[in-house]
Amino acid sequence: MPVRRGHVAPQNTFLDTIIRKFEGQSRKFIIANARVENCAVIYCNDGFCELCGYSRAEVMQRPCTCDFLHGPRTQRRAAAQIAQALLGAEERKVEIAFYRKDGSCFLCLVDVVPVKNEDGAVIMFILNFEVVMEKDMVGSPAHDTNHRGPPTSWLAPGRAKTFRLKLPALLALTARESSVRSGGAGGAGAPGAVVVDVDLTPAAPSSESLALDEVTAMDNHVAGLGPAEERRALVGPGSPPRSAPGQLPSPRAHSLNPDASGSSCSLARTRSRESCASVRRASSADDIEAMRAGVLPPPPRHASTGAMHPLRSGLLNSTSDSDLVRYRTISKIPQITLNFVDLKGDPFLASPTSDREIIAPKIKERTHNVTEKVTQVLSLGADVLPEYKLQAPRIHRWTILHYSPFKAVWDWLILLLVIYTAVFTPYSAAFLLKETEEGPPATECGYACQPLAVVDLIVDIMFIVDILINFRTTYVNANEEVVSHPGRIAVHYFKGWFLIDMVAAIPFDLLI
């Protein structure tokens, strides 16, 4: 008679799926529990143990900040960024110097990925580790590398530091407007667009060049630039800015003055950032001319202004700041037409079709709590990747769950009947059967004279019903998954307890 339990259901295979997918890609990662103190490590794979030199037993239950890997060259700011990422709910990448158990130093890129439950609360953290440099290539500990984003994938490793954006290309926007319009339909740009040429040739750093990471940081200074100062900065030398009595002219307006920039070969870094931020506020060169004239017309309804409409929906549905990093990277690809469009465009503009998908598509409701890094690593669709929660398995109709209350009560009843059979069957065979043979035949009273025979008949009927119930009862397979398919249940029961239950259900007393 089957006594099969499996009270692990309803099970959740999400954690096993993450481990299996990460292991298949030869990654070095740990999984931490966000619900406990210090976000203790609950799993670390073999790749991480080989990377740091510690065994799994030495890593388990330690804080996922990996303070046991810190050393003299470990930056405090990087460690603080990892700790801050564990307090938030967004994906974050941090470069930090770690030390192995043998004392060797290596520069590592740590990717902190939160995993949320159905309520939107962070319950786990996945920390992925990628070695960037070994100890002989690690720089000085005073050099802070965590304020910069990861290198873009479309640049060669040897040319990542030679990417320079020439400031004269930004200063000569109005001069290039006529050349853009003359391109017409034969050019790649839309009317009114501004073409910015980027020099990728390796050259020595000069005062006129600005690194790509500095251009990325310009967006942080746009908020500090007032509207009046932006307007004066875009007017140009024809209309000098008016300053109040006793007030000095704005240095932001002076930063885009061609006369002032041409007199000296070098520009201050602050002026460069502010000038680029001011130019980015204009949607095209037409807006710059309109600002000089004193009238700013409404933005025209053409394809170039609607190019950012799908980007707005993608940004609203993005799951991490990696989408913004990807957008900034692609927006700086050289030799393309940049349409400086305000994100607050007309909502009635139709979304044009684009061959290049900048932001990841909208994630469906079932995966809105899973970050983009987890979705990318697992390579699963929205119909396959579940949320991290207890999910009731989908069972067929008329199927009994093996952990249901009805099955528990039924098993206790069958257990009592088995005990009765084990006690009274030998007793009936030894004593009652002998008395029946010696006594007179009682054929007239039937079952009324033999109450134990009636009980034995009921017990046999219950055993037959138990066999039928076992054909529709779920079970737990070797992978700790609840199986509810009727065919698989029948095959599993035939290979197991079916023969024993059938022999126990045969009414031998009635056959004798």
Rank of each mutant, 00 (worst) to 15 (best):
R4S: 14
P10C: 10
T13Q: 12
L15F: 06
D16G: 13
R20Y: 04
R27S: 11
K28E: 01
K28R: 09
F29Q: 01
I30S: 01
I30V: 13
N33G: 06
R35D: 14
C39E: 01
V41A: 01
V41F: 01
C44Q: 01
C44H: 01
D46T: 06
G53R: 01
Y54D: 01
S55W: 01
S55M: 04
R56S: 03
A57R: 14
V59K: 01
M60Q: 03
M60K: 01
P63G: 08
P63I: 01
P63L: 01
C64P: 14
C64F: 02
F68Q: 01
L69I: 01
P72K: 06
R73L: 09
T74C: 01
T74I: 01
Q75R: 13
R76V: 13
A80R: 13
Q81E: 13
Q81A: 14
Q84D: 13
Q84N: 06
Q84S: 13
L87M: 10
G88A: 13
F98L: 09
Y99I: 01
G103W: 01
S104F: 06
S104K: 08
C105R: 13
C105M: 15
L107D: 07
C108L: 01
V110G: 01
V112S: 01
V112N: 01
V115N: 01
V115G: 02
N117V: 09
N117E: 07
E118I: 06
E118F: 11
D119I: 06
D119P: 06
V122H: 06
V122W: 01
I123G: 07
I126A: 11
L127R: 01
L127N: 01
N128H: 09
K135Y: 05
K135A: 08
S140F: 13
H143Q: 11
N146Y: 15
N146H: 05
H147S: 15
R148M: 11
G149I: 06
T152Q: 12
A156I: 11
A160D: 14
L167A: 15
L171R: 15
L171M: 15
R176I: 01
S178V: 06
G184K: 06
G184Q: 15
G189N: 15
V194F: 12
V195Q: 01
V196N: 11
P202I: 01
S207V: 10
E208N: 09
L210Q: 13
L210K: 01
L210G: 06
L212I: 14
E214R: 08
V215Q: 08
V215S: 15
T216I: 10
A217L: 14
M218V: 07
N220R: 07
H221V: 10
V222N: 09
G224Q: 05
G224W: 06
E230A: 09
G236K: 04
G238S: 08
G238L: 14
R242V: 10
P245A: 12
P245D: 14
Q247R: 06
P249C: 10
P249V: 15
S250Y: 05
P251G: 11
R252H: 13
S255I: 05
N257F: 14
A260K: 07
G262W: 13
S263C: 07
C265G: 11
S266K: 08
R271D: 10
R273E: 09
E274P: 07
E274K: 04
S275P: 14
S275A: 07
C276A: 03
S284F: 07
S284L: 13
A285I: 11
A285K: 07
D286S: 09
R292E: 14
L296D: 07
L296S: 05
P300C: 07
P300M: 14
H302T: 06
H302L: 12
A307R: 11
A307L: 12
P310S: 13
N317G: 11
L324R: 11
R326V: 11
S331E: 09
P334Q: 07
Q335C: 04
Q335N: 15
T337L: 12
T337S: 14
L338Y: 15
F340A: 14
V341S: 13
G345V: 05
D346P: 14
D346I: 10
P347T: 14
L349Q: 05
S351N: 15
T353L: 11
T353E: 08
E357D: 10
I358W: 13
I359H: 11
I363E: 12
E365V: 14
E365G: 12
T367A: 13
T371G: 07
E372P: 05
T375H: 05
Q376L: 03
V377H: 04
L378S: 03
L380K: 04
G381D: 09
V384G: 04
V384T: 14
P386N: 04
